[in-house]
């Protein structure tokens, strides 16, 4: 079928021809993603025998998974740590700093309150605070991973970022709820 064939043994960075780093050249990733999908997407083999269509689906699924993983800072960081033998223990390790946990609880309560009084402005404020903190965590992750290459030390930052992602989901749900 296509000239390109995905090697499933390669890392997500390798299939896009990118160096393994937390800092990401987003336009380069997009370009590489599009040009791979132009070759392997099932639309290109819809007229071919079933076996080739199946292979195309597997390859395109793999390329999508790779792209989604690298595009998300949280998933990208988690993946780099995994490649370097560090388990982020997001389910098991609950030993987070107390001040961080308290701050998280307060933020969530504020979201619930904003929904109760249907205050979109408060929600927007909470959202930009969450965004600022997320950006800060990502900056620290870049320093730990790309600078210090301290993967074990980056694990706690990943766990914190996971909290922020949960918070972002709750804020999105809160917007929906106010909308209803």
């Amino acid at each position: 079928m296509s000239a390109t064939s995905i090697n499933f043994q390669q890392s997500f960075f390798e299939i896009f021809g990118l160096a393994q780093s937390f800092k990401l050249d987003t336009p380069a990733l997009e370009q590489a993603y599009w040009s791979l999908q132009l070759d392997v997407h099932p639309d290109k083999s819809a007229h071919l025998p079933d076996a080739e269509q199946r292979l195309a689906m597997q390859q395109a699924t793999f390329v999508n998974e790779a792209y989604q993983t690298l595009r998300s800072p949280l998933r990208r960081a988690r993946y780099i740590l995994k490649l370097n033998g560090v388990d982020t223990q997001e389910e098991a390790n609950t030993a987070m700093p107390m001040d961080f946990l308290i701050a998280q609880m307060e933020l969530r309560e504020a979201v619930v309150e904003a929904v109760q009084v249907r205050d979109v402005d408060v929600l927007t404020e909470l959202e930009s605070g969450m965004q600022a903190e997320t950006n800060e965590l990502e900056r620290q992750l870049a320093a730990k991973i790309d600078g210090d290459r301290n993967f074990a030390g980056a694990a706690e930052l990943v766990r914190k970022l996971r909290f922020m992602e949960k918070l972002a989901e709750e804020i999105a749900d809160a917007y929906d709820e106010i909308d209803n």
Binding site: W34, Q37, L38, H41, D43, A46, H47, L48
Partner: peptide
């Protein structure tokens, strides 16, 4: 247009749908 592409009728410019 999509059917034409999927049937394997190459029509000039290549495009991709995600």
């Amino acid at each position: 247009i999509q059917a034409n592409l999927l049937a394997g009728n190459r029509s000039g410019e290549d495009w991709l749908l995600l």
